[in-house]
Amino acid sequence: MIRAMIGAQKALSIGTVLLIPASLYMVFVYAPNEATMGVVQRIFYYHVATAWNGYLFIGLVALMSLIYLIRREDTWNRAARSAAELGVLFITLTLIAGSLWARPVWNVWWTWDPRLVTTLILWFFYVAYLLIQAGAGESQRQKRFAAVFGIVGVIDIPLVHYSVVLWRSIHPNVVRPGNPGMPPEMLITMIVSVIAFTVLGLYLWSRRLEVESLSQRVEALKAKVLPL
């Protein structure tokens, strides 16, 4: 699977080069101006796309962690760590974009709305995961702990979300099943942005996996040449 990801790099890079400019065009030219929020609403297309990637990569962290616990091969641990790095990146972008949007629309940079809280908790989770990885070094036990933490985190996120919804509920719930709540041009723009960012995210991940695979090879060669 990891090799397939690295192998797909060329296709992903072509996809990114085509899709990102397309989504830029759609976001800034094709999509109509929103009636009340005006031009600020266009942040939404990137906000949704980065948030989606944040959730996609947490899923990948859990999946790679699970495979690592079963197979105990370092490659999977490295794949999980790389996915978590991208998760932090996209969740950070989501929080920043959301904040930039909220200031003119809600008149505040931040509110304690359920989705914001869940996303913030998700960010804390990723940071904690990377801290564990940073401290792991060569320790097999710490790497296994990171994997356990990755799995437990994914199981916890739905409960975290449900509990903050129960706690309080002003985030615009734009996308509901059966009712997109926006004109088709906006919907199409959103879908294209989400796809473009997914391809971009996967492309970055495949580059990251390639770097990890190279560094693994270098380490193996070093161990051969310098037997300590």
């Binding site: 804390f124 904690a128 995961y129 401290g135 320790s139 702990f145 975290v160």
Partner: peptide, 23 residues
Amino acid sequence: GATSGERSTGLLLPLVLFPLLTP
């Protein structure tokens, strides 16, 4: 149990535990 081997145990445990304890 998992963080006990860490040099930074005291700080790491709350960092990893509290986000999960939201509910």
